[in-house]
């Protein structure tokens, strides 16, 4: 099992480039430890801004820094960044089109039994409805590295969500094409399509492999960019496979599933199933227990696929 978390990759990449590009600024809100940014703060004290426990101030300051030419990367828990500071995100960052990268750490149900205050299960829904900001959720450490290379050349507002713990690899190296806004076909197949994002990509890939043993061709799309959404890949999947399942670490409302459904119903209506966290405060437990409880698992994905295929 891989031991490197996606947030550590982000920290490593920023540490690598900050020595050359002095405009790169990392901001934290008493969150440097949980964001794996302690070593960055020690190495580049002039490029690190601590604001204390004040997430609204955090996003506003980042917008101000961007307006004078800095390249701010905010690193703080996703739950607070996308709720407490949402007006700063909407106005100061997205509406004003400031070059701020908002990195939400410990996203989804990473914080497990700490409860709803610490879960970010509405972040995609909220962010998606704001014009002018991209949303990216990398699937593993390799993809996080690819994403970071792209982001360093990308001017404009982006929200990135990563989990707390290391995730199992879905790639084995950096040797593949990655482009913001373009879904990646992880498995080919023409019977059914699973569209996944972030940590659920691994589950989708494993489910597809299991379905293959039954002779079922299950396409898997890694939708690392939720916005702008790769509509073309979705429409193609609807045409070619006729059935779509989405799976995400997010509320069943307003997330990846809803985004895909909007495209499907308006272009090529096909049967769909949306897997995610239902409309309730998530049950207490670690994230694996929570995933299993709500059917974000290989076995449930397999069963749901089978019933859609009937």
């Amino acid at each position: 099992m891989n031991k490197i978390s996606n947030k550590e990759v982000i920290s490593d990449v920023l540490s690598r480039v900050a020595g050359v590009d002095k405009d790169i600024i990392v901001l934290a809100s008493d969150s440097r430890g949980s964001a794996s940014m302690t070593s960055f703060a020690e190495k580049y004290p002039q490029q690190f801004v601590e604001v204390g426990i004040a997430e609204q101030n955090l996003v506003g300051i980042a917008a101000g820094l961007a307006s004078v030419g800095k390249k701010p990367f905010i690193t703080s828990p996703a739950c607070f960044l996308t709720m407490r500071s949402i007006e700063q995100v909407k106005l100061d960052v997205a509406y004003s089109q400031m070059n701020v990268k908002i990195v939400g750490i410990s996203g989804g149900v990473s914080y497990g039994a700490l409860g709803m205050s610490h879960h970010s299960l509405q972040d995609i829904a909220v962010m998606r409805a704001i014009p002018g900001i991209s949303i990216i959720i990398p699937a593993d450490r390799y993809e996080t590295e690819k994403m970071m290379s792209s982001l360093l050349d990308y001017e404009g507002p982006v929200y990135v969500r990563v989990g707390r713990n290391p995730v199992e690899d879905v790639y084995s190296d950096l040797n593949y094409n990655y482009e913001i806004g373009k879904a990646i076909v992880m498995r080919q197949g023409n019977d059914i399509t699973i569209i996944a994002t972030g940590e659920t990509v691994k589950i989708a890939v494993d489910a597809s492999d299991k379905l293959k043993e039954e002779g079922i061709g299950c396409r898997v799309l890694n939708m690392h960019t939720i916005k702008p959404l790769d509509e073309e890949a979705i429409i193609k999947a609807a045409h070619e496979t006729g059935r779509i399942i989405t799976i995400e670490e997010h509320s069943i409302f307003g997330g990846l599933g809803a985004a895909v459904a909007e495209v499907v119903v308006q272009n090529k209506p096909v049967p769909m199933k949306i897997l995610g966290i239902p409309d309730e405060p998530a049950i207490a437990g670690n994230s694996k227990q929570i995933f299993d409880y709500y059917g974000l698992s290989v076995s449930n994905l397999y069963n749901v696929s089978m019933s859609l295929l009937k």
């Binding site: 497990g112 700490l114 409860g115 205050s117 610490h118 049950i283 207490a284 227990q289």
Partner: peptide
């Protein structure tokens, strides 16, 4: 797992 005594 499943407790009401969550971490907050």
């Amino acid at each position: 797992f499943g407790t009401r005594l969550i971490g907050h």
